[in-house]
């Protein structure tokens, strides 16, 4: 049940984009069409879901005084980023092989997932909140799913308002920022629900 709680909380209640405003760069840049947003969203779910457990293992069995009692936590950031970068490389190769069209439309933003702060942020949240292995897996998948939902929702809206008479000064990014704010309001609907308290697991 803990797995489920953390998944729901990460996806809907503490959404990485709309509650913490993490990962905005690629969120704003790749959300012009649903198709590419869908692809990038899947890539983020995958990368978050893989890197968080790996980073948990590294953090627990290498850095946190596990080797001769040495405190290696100062290496945390650089190791986390190295793991993320290698995973992104993997995703990149897979996407290039499976769907060259998607690979081309994602362009530079695919390798840039490496520095997507939602992903590094996820790993750092994991450390700060002292998740265990399954919890960090749940948080990774849930956070990725929340990010995925947010980006395809805004992409569908941006496809729709392409035909609207938006004031010239606001076209493009301006509108994307306003939309993100409004979506943040809408997502506040679920904020405050505590799944753990409801199911009595905590």
């Amino acid at each position: 049940m803990d797995f489920f709680n953390i998944f729901i909380k990460a996806a809907f209640i503490d959404n990485l984009v709309l509650a913490y405003f993490l990962g905005m760069c690629s969120y704003l840049a790749v959300s012009k069409t649903v198709k590419t947003a869908f692809g990038l969203g899947l890539a983020v779910i995958f990368v978050l879901g893989i890197t968080m457990p790996i980073n948990w293992l590294i953090n627990t069995y290498l850095l946190d005084g596990a080797i001769n009692g040495l405190d290696l936590t100062f290496l945390r950031l650089i190791l986390f980023i190295a793991v993320i970068a290698s995973m992104v490389q993997l995703v990149e190769m897979v996407i290039e092989k499976i769907s060259p069209a998607l690979y081309n439309s994602l362009g530079i933003f695919l390798p840039l997932i490496t520095v997507n702060c939602a992903i590094l942020g996820g790993s750092l949240f994991m450390v700060a909140r002292e998740y265990n292995f399954t919890e960090s897996l749940a948080f990774g998948l849930g956070g990725g799913f929340g990010w995925f939902l947010a980006i395809i929702a805004i992409a569908a809206i941006r496809e729709k308002i392409k035909y609207s008479d938006v004031p010239p000064a606001l076209r493009g990014l301006g509108m994307a920022f306003i939309l993100t704010g409004l979506m943040g309001i809408a997502f506040m609907s679920l904020m405050g629900i505590d799944p753990a308290a409801l199911t009595g697991t905590k």
Binding site: A153, A155, I157, I185, A186, S189
Partner: peptide, 12 residues
């Protein structure tokens, strides 16, 4: 809030 949330998802 539910209607606003689904307004966001309606285009999707």
């Amino acid at each position: 809030l539910a209607i606003l949330l689904l307004n966001v998802f309606a285009p999707l």
